[in-house]
């Protein structure tokens, strides 16, 4: 069993927006998707997924509709709004800047140790 790491603070929103950007999904599917795509490395506590979804919906980044699934049950499907798309772009860009900077610093530390 692999060791799963916790999500860094504030990245859950970004991941949700990214996953939902492709097509509308319900909460369970979003959880599944996050797990698959991150190859089980990232642990998304299922309990904290829903408050995050509701928060994003409240801020207007996500909109939700009740629709039927393939199995014939009603589920709440979330989709990205225009505002959410803009949010996703800015957050993704800043995340990339951050990781790049952190990477640089780590490489420098390695260089110094040798």
């Amino acid at each position: 069993m692999s060791i799963k790491s916790d999500l860094p603070q504030g990245t859950l929103d970004l991941l949700i927006l990214k996953v939902v950007a492709l097509r509308p999904l319900h909460g369970y599917a979003i959880a599944q998707r996050l797990q698959q795509v991150s190859r089980d490395v990232v642990q998304v506590p299922q309990g904290s997924l829903y408050p995050a979804l509701h928060r994003l919906e409240n801020r207007g980044c996500l909109a939700a509709d009740w629709k039927e699934t393939e199995t014939g049950r009603d589920a709440k499907f979330y989709r990205l709004t225009r505002k959410g798309r803009a949010q996703l772009q800015t957050e993704a860009a800043s995340w990339q800047r951050l990781t790049k900077a952190v990477g640089l610093i780590l490489e420098m530390a390695d260089g110094g140790a040798e």
Binding site: G47, P51, A52, R55
Partner: peptide
């Protein structure tokens, strides 16, 4: 068990409504 305390999750969702 995996989901966690569902009452706690509900509380958090209510808080998230703003």
């Amino acid at each position: 068990i995996t989901f966690g305390g569902s009452e706690q999750v509900k509380e958090d969702c209510r808080d998230a409504r703003g």
